[in-house]
Design a binder for these strands. Structure first.
Lengths: 246, 246
DNA sequence: CGCCCTCTTGATCTCCTTCAATGACAGTGG
DNA sequence: CCACTGTCATTGAAGGAGATCAAGAGGGCG
């Protein structure tokens, strides 16, 4: 089932709203690692809900270089930026095995019409993604390689925690060093060297497929940006319209 | 008066809708070059409409470096990303003399409640900004200095044209080389050198405060990204609710 | 077993930064 | 009218962060 914690981050939802979100997507589809969900340039007819697994959103430049705009985690909506375009702006690729549900635009429009409050929350979610991009841009433009890696680890730690995937500051990291490079605008070789430095300095440790953050405070200090705190139930959020008292 | 071409890029508006947008902002305020409209960390109570002039949105990192996230032109809405935050994420600074109108959240919420179609267009506008950030991120992460500058010039050319500020591929460029550096993640010195190369190669020319693009096609080819074409009146856009036939 | 993918490390190169100095120009106050 | 000041563009020289090229090691999987 689609995890709605991202929506609940902004408001307490009524039961009707929760059910609406839970039924937003069509049937769940499973993708194998490396499989593509949608390719840059495809005709756009809806968005996707990420239910399980990790998915990356990548863009290829005219010069052939690739950059990964974002790694998506369960609860994220995928491909919403392309809703204003005729053709998809990004390629969605499963990193791990992933479950995805398609939401055709018609259904999205329907929910927006019937639940203005969910429409507003959708807009909020888009703004959150935009803020994340702003922070990523600033880091990519002005931070050193090591600072960028610190940022990536802190970001994942922060986003994985509410999903329950972090135990004692350790979590599974299914990203290859090449993916990390494409995420931060670096080469895989350089990622390797700088991660080693972080290990040697005792900030992080690797345990097989897992990463453990040993000095979270130091890593946060090193990171050029810190995760943003959102405002819960801002006063201009519309009230629920389903009649249920919250 | 607030120029609404950015809204009309997505749909033909009814007269009522146009008037609503025109009256969205409170009284117009004039800012001198270098004056600040809002500072990172300020309490957020609304957004701004840019009526006249150029404004930049900058973010400062923990390490003290600054990056300009975007240069805003007339018709843009400023500061909307911070609507989900308690404190502003970016600093808004006038580059040229600029006219700005404040829109308190209450008024924004009111318009959203009465005009679901305008609410949807607002979301679209946010997505457009997000796409612009995605492209900027990819370019900053994976493009050379010269490619980035080509991109910046093509972007400004594209955005200034509908405003009527481009004549024979020439337009006023009120950005210092330091600002251009902070926009692209480079140093002012390097911007200077690479702009000179673009001049020497005959791609652009400088005429005082103005820049003239001599070889637009070549500059577009050099640019790592090309401006995106948006979809006009996507079918899932709600109908107008003011009863006027379009 | 052999292949492919990923991680790792070394050596070299280069794009961009950093530091520094100069000139052009506008504003300002005497 | 002219020194004085600050901003911005410009150019040179040196240094460094990260890229590129190359090769080997380990591991999963057919």
């Amino acid at each position: 089932m689609y995890p709605i914690h991202r929506w609940q981050a902004f408001a307490k939802l009524t039961r009707v709203e929760e059910e609406t979100l839970a039924n937003l997507g069509e049937g769940e589809v499973v993708r194998r690692p490396g499989e593509t969900i949608r390719v840059e340039g495809d005709i756009v007819s809806g968005v996707y809900l990420l239910i399980r697994g990790w998915v990356m959103s990548s863009i290829v430049l005219q010069n052939g270089a690739r950059l990964i705009q974002k790694v998506h985690l369960p609860g994220d909506m995928l491909g919403t930026a392309s809703m204003v375009l005729p053709c998809a702006a990004d390629t969605l690729t499963a990193i791990t095995e992933a479950s995805v549900a398609f939401v055709p635009f018609g259904r999205l429009a329907d929910v927006h019409a019937r639940f203005p409050r969910l429409a507003a929350l959708f807009t909020f979610a888009v703004q959150v993604e935009r803020l994340a991009l702003m922070d990523a841009l600033v880091a990519t433009g002005r931070a050193s390689a090591k600072e960028q890696l610190a940022r990536l680890l802190v970001d994942l730690h922060t986003r994985l925690t509410p999903l329950g995937f972090v135990r004692d500051d350790a979590f599974d990291l299914p990203l290859t060093q090449e993916i990390i490079g494409d995420l931060s605008g670096l080469t895989a070789v350089h990622v390797n060297r700088k991660l080693r430095e972080l290990r040697e300095e005792g900030l992080i440790a690797r345990e097989g497929q897992k990463v453990r953050i040993l000095k979270l405070v130091a890593l946060r200090d090193l990171s050029p940006t810190i995760p943003r705190l959102h405002r819960f139930e801002p006063p201009w959020l519309p009230r629920s319209t389903d009649g249920e008292s919250v």
